[in-house]
Structure formats: structure tokens, C-alpha cells
Amino acid sequence: MDTHYIKRQTANYAALTISVLSAAFGIFFLFWILKDVFVFGFKAINIDFFTELPAPPGMEGGGLANAILGTLMITVLATAIGVPAGIMAGTYLSEYGRKSRMASVVRFTSDILVSAPSIVIGVFVYALLVKPLGGFSAIAGAVALAIIMLPVVVRTSEEMLKLVPDATREAALALGAPHWKVTIHVVYRGAIRGIVTGVMLAVARVSGETAPLLFTSFNNAFWNFDMTEPTATLTVTIFNYAMGPYDDWHQKAWGAALLITVVVLLVNMISRIIVRGKA
């Protein structure tokens, strides 16, 4: 066999081996991170973790019940602001704007906003809501998360609405139904599965955000049910506890990390199954 041929074969095998190793590298780190989060997280999870307030600094015990509630409150409010706005904007793109100049500018802007640094969104909301109104609040945190959610929902709902064939719209229009009724009763109904999936992913993504909450919802060591007050969240608690000096804090941070990771992974897997079921 001539050396040229052997050289080409060797290069081929070398390149293919490297690409297999690359995939292995990614999966290795996924499992390494998940393993540690589960192993260390489980040690911190008990009934108190879900029901008790944080213990005073340096003391053992207590839980993160207030932060769990805070994360829920802020995420729910952010969803209530971001999702309807995002779906309406997505509706504009797929039902009205389509190829217009306005629509392409909106697409471009949302694609940039999707990847905009979340900490800058935090700074923006601080300047917009926290500084003028004189204090950190759960509302400011929710607005920051809603801004992060908005472009994600805009783009996924547009993609999902576009999957509904135009013939379906035309059939309903031909029966004399007004355009808005067609959109709500026919197009939304056809795309509901995809939109719900997109919304779930967006909610999962913002529930793990930390940077935009650091200077909007800030933190709180106690129960807080008032949306205009500083509110503890799981992610900001992880940041403060992990950076702190106490072992008990570190353990609580692992527990919070486990809780968030499990929720995010479950949502991702469920949405994958929903999407696959559709295809």
C-alpha cells in the first residue's frame, strides 16, 4: 500500500478520534457537575430546608423557605409580564409583520436582547426602578427577569406560530371569521403545544438567573410577602452563601443549587418529550 493512502487514512482516523473525544469532553463535564450538585445537594435537603427561615450567620440549621417563596413570587410575576407581551409580539411577527421592515428590525433586536448580558439588564432596571423609587423590590427583580424572558418568548412563539400552515388560516378566513378570531381560535390552538414548551423553557431559564437580581430584588433574611420590599431568592442566596465563610452556608448553597438544577433539568426534559411527541 502506498504511503499517501496510509497518510490520508491516518489523518482521517485522527480527526474522527478527536471529534469523538470532543463529545466525550462535553458529556464528561455535564456528569461531573451534576454528580457534585446531587451528592453535595442531597446532604443539605431536609424538611427544615423547605420550611424554616435562614439561621443567623454562623449558626447551624435553619432553611431557605423564604428564598424559595421569593424565587416563586418573582418568577411568577416575571412570567405574568413577559409571556403575554412576548406572545403578542410573536403574533405580530408571524401574523402581521412577516417580511416587513419593522418585523425584521424586531427580530434582529430580540436576537440581540436574547444574548444581552443579564447583569446589564440588572443595572438598567436598577437605574429605572430601584434608584428613582428609593429601594430594592421584588417588582424590580421581576421586571428584570421579564425583560430577559421577553425576547426568548417573542422568538419561540413566532417560530411556533409559523409552523401553522397558511392554508389553515385561509380556510378559517374564507368562512368569514375576522382575522383576530382566526388567530386566537385557529392559529393559537394549532401552536399551543410549541408555545407552552417555549414558555416553560423561558421560565426555567430565568428561574436560574442571578446577575439581574443582585441589585433589583436584592436579599432578605426574613419572610417577605410585600412585592415592594427586598426579597430573598434562591440564586442570590447561593451567591451570598457560597462566597461566605461558614460551612453550613456552603451546604445550604449546595442544597439550593440542587433544587434549581433539578427544576431546570426536569423542565428541559419534559419540554423535549412534548416537542418530540408532536413531531
Binding site: L30, I33, D36, G208, E209, T210, I238, F239, W254, N268
Partner: peptide, 13 residues
């Protein structure tokens, strides 16, 4: 899934 893990988890880990 690596992309869905929140950034704070990467930091802490």
C-alpha cells in the same frame, strides 16, 4: 443540557 445549567451553578461548582 450543559447550556440549561444556570450560570450560578457553574460558578459555585
Amino acid at each position: 443540557l450543559l447550556a440549561s445549567i444556570p450560570s450560578i451553578i457553574y460558578g459555585m461548582w
